[in-house]
Design a protein around this nucleic acid. Structure first.
Length: 279
DNA sequence: AGATCGGCCTGGACGC
DNA sequence: TGCGTCCAGGCCGATC
């Protein structure tokens, strides 16, 4: 479930290990989700950025050195990056490649594996800035923790749509990087029913703020680990113990004590407090 | 055009 | 023990 905080935590460990490195070779399963990945060979990594749940790396084109292409990475549900031969994390075991390694990069100073049990992840190389083949990235909304995320624009977009508010949070167009976990957490914090189809200005303002708080706190704890999510060094995030809504069905609401309830909304499991989050 | 829904993919939990 | 069924869910494409 890598969402914005998990992807950002991966980025922070990946960037210092990758920027400036040359990619000598890459091997991968021949599948659509690795389309064009061979074009990463012979390039140098210039940066590792993040947009929503996507990791983006500018590559210098060999042999001219111009920036002409970009590696686009999405972790899907279970994707992770691990370097071979690095020391084991505290309380963990060293990384050994297994049957779930889907792509391997040979760098000038080491080997990087992309592991992805459920194959929802995606690694592609595109001409720099050309995202038209990646619809979600091309239409991605503002970064919630940047000044581009404007509370009034957000409120107007919520007022305009008739879809359930949680569905809007998940579609990546109003705001980038929010997934099921942080949607449930932010809606609980803002006291908004996930099924609400009309969200007024006051609630929109609360939700805008709740999103920023929830995501900021999760980044500080390096993300939420249930099972698969790991950082590049193999460690788990520490946010799971702080969740108050997602996955907490049946437990008393920390605000009012009533039991939290789980429903299905837009095909997604959704947990909320029927009392605090009235429609 | 926006809303909605099923499929992709796999391992693990659960019931019998 | 073993088998079948369901669930997790980000994204994508089809359909309404």
């Amino acid at each position: 479930m890598p969402e914005l905080p998990e992807v950002e935590s991966v980025r922070r460990q990946l960037a210092p290990r990758l920027v400036g490195r040359s990619v000598l070779d890459v091997t991968y399963e021949s599948q659509d989700r690795f389309e064009g990945l061979e074009r990463v060979g012979g390039t140098r990594v210039l940066d590792v950025r993040r947009r929503g749940k996507y990791l983006l790396a500018h590559l210098s084109g060999a042999p001219t050195g111009t920036v002409d292409r970009e590696l686009v990475m999405h972790l899907g549900m279970t994707g992770s990056f691990r370097f071979r031969g690095e020391p084991a994390p505290v309380g963990g075991t060293a990384w050994t490649p297994d049957a779930y390694v889907r792509a391997t990069f040979t760098l000038d100073d080491g080997v990087l594996d992309f592991r992805d049990v459920r194959r929802f992840g995606r690694l592609t190389v595109v001409p720099a800035g050309h995202y038209d083949g990646i619809a979600t990235l091309a239409a991605l909304g503002p970064e919630p923790l940047s000044d581009d995320f404007d509370a009034e624009v957000f409120a107007r977009a919520l007022a305009r749509s008739r879809a359930p508010v949680k569905t809007l949070l998940l579609n990546q167009r109003l705001v980038a990087g929010v997934g099921n976990i942080y949607a449930d957490e932010a809606l609980w914090r803002a006291r908004i029913n996930p099924r609400a189809r009309r969200v007024g200005p006051a609630r929109a303002q609360r939700l805008w703020r709740a999103l920023r708080e929830v995501l900021t706190e999760a980044i500080e704890r390096e993300g939420t680990t249930f099972r698969d999510y790991r950082m590049v060094n193999g460690e788990s995030g520490r946010n799971a113990d702080f969740l108050v809504a997602y996955g907490q069905e049946g437990k008393p609401c920390p605000r009012c004590g009533d039991p939290l309830r789980k429903i299905t909304l837009g095909g997604r499991g959704t947990t909320y407090c029927p009392r605090c989050q009235r429609r």
